[in-house]
């Protein structure tokens, strides 16, 4: 995998939590959200400066709503930025995101513990 691209992203986007070697994550989902942004950037969906501006906007909005922004919520803002950008770029809509979120919730509910959670068409009904 191209850690060089990741390193570049970590430098181009302000505030990415990191150590001497590069990005660090508090939880697996944070790394997944990071990886999604990296892939979309490689696809050319946005530039890092565009991403950084959208992320800054999210953080500003969250702070206005009382987020202490101690770094613990950084990837929450990152995720909100992803959702916002894919909608404004016309890739999907907030409604579709919501529908898939509910479908995953349904899939988790019907999946016995210890089995991989997989999405099926029935989860959308």
């Amino acid at each position: 995998m191209d850690t060089e691209a990741a390193g570049h992203a970590a430098k181009a986007v302000p505030g990415v939590p990191r150590d001497d070697e590069g990005p660090v994550f508090r939880a697996p989902w944070e790394a997944q959200a990071f990886a999604i942004a990296l892939s979309l950037h490689e696809r050319g969906l946005f530039t890092w400066s565009e991403w950084a501006a959208a992320l800054a906007e999210q953080i500003k909005r969250a702070q206005a709503a009382g987020d202490p922004d101690t770094g613990e919520t950084y990837y929450q803002h990152w995720l909100a930025t992803l959702e916002h950008l894919v909608a404004t770029k016309g890739v999907t809509t907030p409604e579709t995101l919501h529908r898939y979120r509910d479908a995953w919730d349904h899939a988790a509910d019907r999946t016995p513990h210890g089995k991989p959670i997989e999405l099926t068409p029935a989860d959308f009904e």
């Binding site: 989902w29 999604i36 579709t96 995101l97 995953w104 988790a108 513990h113 999405l119």
Partner: peptide
């Protein structure tokens, strides 16, 4: 005890991932 559980955040990440 008997079914799986995803946090709100994990649900949103999975939703994005499947759509994309």
């Amino acid at each position: 005890h008997d079914h799986s559980d995803l946090s709100e955040t994990e649900l949103r990440v999975r939703a994005l991932e499947s759509i994309l």
